[in-house]
Amino acid sequence: MIADHIMFTGVNVLLAWSVYVILLSGSVSFANGAFMAIGGYGAGVLTTKFGLPLVAGIPIAALGTAAFGMIIGLPALRTRGIYLILVTTGIAFCVKNAIEAIPYVGGVRGMRGLVGAEPWHVWVVAGVVGLLLWLLSRTPLQRILDAVREDELVARSLGINTVYVKVIAFGTGAALAAVAGGLYAHYMYVINPEHFGILVSVYVVLYVILGGVNNLWGPPLGAAVMTLLPELIRGLQAWRPIVFGVVIVILLLVRPEGLLPFRSPTARAKEARRG
C-alpha cells in the first residue's frame, strides 16, 4: 500500500510538471491524460510485443508522444484560453476512444503483462526532471517562455518565434506525460483506457493550479497533497469526495495563486545574475 502511494504520488508529480511546462509558454493543456495514455500504451507495446527493455521502451514512447504532441499542437496552439481548453479536451477524448477501438492493444479490456517499474524509478526520473526545470529557470530560455506567456504579440515584436516556443513546450509536456504513463503502466501490470480518462487530465491541471502555476515547486507540491489527501481522509468513506471537493474550493479561495506564490522578481533577477 505504501509503495502504491509512493508510486502514484511520483507519477502525479511528473504529470503535474508536464502540465507546468506547457503552462510556462502560456498554454493550458487538458490533453495530458491522453499523452500519458500514448506513453503507457506505446511503451507497453514496445516491451510486451517487441521485447524491448523498459529503459528503451519509455524514451522511445516519449519521443513518439512528443512528435504527436507537436503535430497536434501546431494547429491547436493557434487557439487560446477557453478554446484551447476545448481543443485539448477533444484530443483527450479522441485518444481514449481510439485506443478502445484498437484490438491490437486490447481495446476496452486493456493490455496486460506490463512489469518492471518500481516506485524509486519514478522518483529518480522526477528528481532529474526537477533538476532540469530548475536549471531551465536560470537560463535565458525561462525569460523567453515568460515573455511568450505574458504577451505573445509583444514577444513576437521583440523577435521571439512564439509558434516555435509554444510547440516545443507542448511537445516537451507531452513527452513528460508519456514518461509518467510508461512508468505507471509498467507498475500496474494491466492498463485499460479508463485509466487515462478525461478526469486524469482535469486532476493534473488541478494539481498545478492548487500548487501554484508560477513556481517550479508548486506543481509537485499540489500533486503530492492532492494524491495523499484523499488517502488521509479515507475514514470519511462516502463523504470523501465531498470533503475533497470542499478542500479544493477552500484552497482556491484562501490561496488563489496556489500553495506556493509567484517567484518574486527580485529572486528571479538574483537567480539570473548568479546563472
Binding site: D146, A147, E150
Partner: peptide, 13 residues
C-alpha cells in the same frame, strides 16, 4: 511591457 516581469528582466529580454 511584460507586467509580471521586473524592469530588469524586461530590458534584459
Amino acid at each position: 511591457v511584460m507586467p509580471n516581469l521586473s524592469v530588469w528582466e524586461n530590458i534584459r529580454i
